[in-house]
């Protein structure tokens, strides 16, 4: 919101943020969360929703590119939703994260003299499935890494390619269960998963 605030802190610079959101596992909640982005006309780069290690609790990992100013307002509005347990914002250096990519390539390229195996090994990928018509390769990494392998394989003909959203863990030590326990016993909605109150 650089038009509303004068930028004295660099908060108005756009960068990539990863949000980690814990919610009750209820129908419609995904819509409730994404509608907050829609309202501000913010595009979501990646989103991953899955059950957390705690039964009945979902974890959302959302990646978006915007300003610190904007992302903090968005996080507050996500937290405000009744069934949201917690929402946290991280910059790249505050998390460990991975994405997974699957590449379906024709089996014949293995026969055609190309050293596909070498490519796979060099890129830390692995073969998941071998079928008569195709071979399925899996690679885990950051987007640059999975994209790099895509670019290498592309000339040989990729039949299908898919990349997942990001999953991330913060570099802090607290576990989800411990966070939920503290949430149950606290009056405030602003517990940080890093253990500091924001």
């Amino acid at each position: 919101m650089s038009d509303i605030y004068q930028d004295k802190t660099g908060d108005a610079v756009e960068k990539q943020f990863t949000l980690s959101v814990l919610t009750e596992d209820l129908p419609g909640l995904l819509n409730n969360v994404t509608i907050i982005f829609t309202r501000r006309k913010l595009n979501i780069d990646m989103i991953n929703v899955s059950s957390s290690e705690v039964p009945g609790v979902s974890r959302y990992t959302i990646v978006l590119t915007t300003t610190r100013e904007q992302v903090e307002k968005v996080v507050k509005q996500i937290r405000k939703h009744i069934d949201v347990l917690g929402a946290f914002v991280y910059e790249e250096d505050e998390i460990h994260y991975q994405e997974i990519a699957l590449y379906k390539v024709p089996t014949r390229i293995f026969m055609g003299g190309v050293n596909v195996e070498k490519i796979i090994r060099a890129n830390n990928a692995r073969i998941l499935v071998i079928e008569q018509d195709y071979i399925l390769i899996e690679k885990t990494g950051h987007k640059e890494d999975t994209q790099k392998l895509y670019d290498i394989l592309e000339p040989y003909g990729i039949m299908e390619f898919v990349r997942s959203g990001r999953v991330a863990v913060s570099k802090s030590k607290r576990k989800t269960e411990q966070f939920l326990e503290e949430l149950e016993n606290s009056n405030t909605h602003s517990l940080s998963i890093n253990g500091q109150n924001k």
């Binding site: 009750e24 009744i82 347990l85 939920l180 949430l183 149950e184 009056n187 405030t188 909605h189 602003s190």
Partner: peptide, 10 residues
């Protein structure tokens, strides 16, 4: 009480 909702922050 709703565990995800804390209407009166201290």
């Amino acid at each position: 009480k709703i565990r995800s909702y804390h209407p009166y922050p201290p």
